[in-house]
Amino acid sequence: MRRKLRVAAYAVCVRDGQILLARSPGLDGTPEWVLPGGGMEHGEDPYDTVRREVTEETGYRIRVTGLLGVDSLRLTGSRRFGRRTDHHGVRIVYSGEIVGGELRNEVGGSTDFAGWQDLDAVPGLNRVPLIDTALRLWRERPAAGRVE
């Protein structure tokens, strides 16, 4: 079984009762909302990763305002490229504030649309589970940086 570790950094950007999200085509082609962010490049600091990824996916520049926490996800047994994979994702979640840029969609990347969504509407969106975890971290601000 192939083992794969992916470390990524994401931002929770909330203003005026709305959260900034990006839309991904999804694994099966069904669009789903994701947090702006993504995988670290080798040698890159997670702080720089989240700033780069938010700009790539939304057009905005952010100021990181805090570390909300770290989430870990392990998926085993999925088949990708004909091989079983043991995937371990470590997701670093920051809070961020928009400081520049203009909202735009990513071209040629992992997302195809970016926009502000009402916080109250998030439960009705087709979304990845990390959004719920990140919003809990943002609301609760647990000292240990982890929600159960």
Rank of each mutant, 00 (worst) to 15 (best):
V99R: 09
S95T: 01
R80C: 05
L67Y: 05
G39F: 06
R84V: 13
V54M: 13
E41G: 07
T58Q: 04
P46Y: 00
T76D: 09
V70T: 12
R52A: 09
E53G: 06
G38M: 02
V50T: 09
G66Y: 07
E56P: 06
E44K: 04
R84F: 12
R91C: 03
V70P: 05
Y60E: 10
V64D: 07
D71I: 04
Y94K: 07
G43N: 12
L68C: 05
G77P: 06
T85R: 14
R84N: 08
G100M: 01
T85M: 15
H87M: 05
L73K: 14
L67T: 04
Y94P: 05
L75K: 01
R51W: 08
E97W: 06
L75Y: 01
G77V: 14
G77L: 11
R83K: 06
Y47R: 12
R51D: 01
T65M: 14
T76L: 06
M40F: 00
S95W: 06
G100C: 04
R91M: 09
L75D: 00
G77F: 11
E97P: 08
R83E: 12
I62T: 14
E56C: 03
H87W: 02
I62S: 12
R83A: 10
R61C: 07
V70Y: 01
V90D: 05
V99K: 08
I98P: 07
R52N: 08
D86P: 02
E97I: 05
I62M: 14
G89M: 09
E56F: 08
G89I: 06
Y60H: 11
V54R: 10
V90S: 10
Y94F: 15
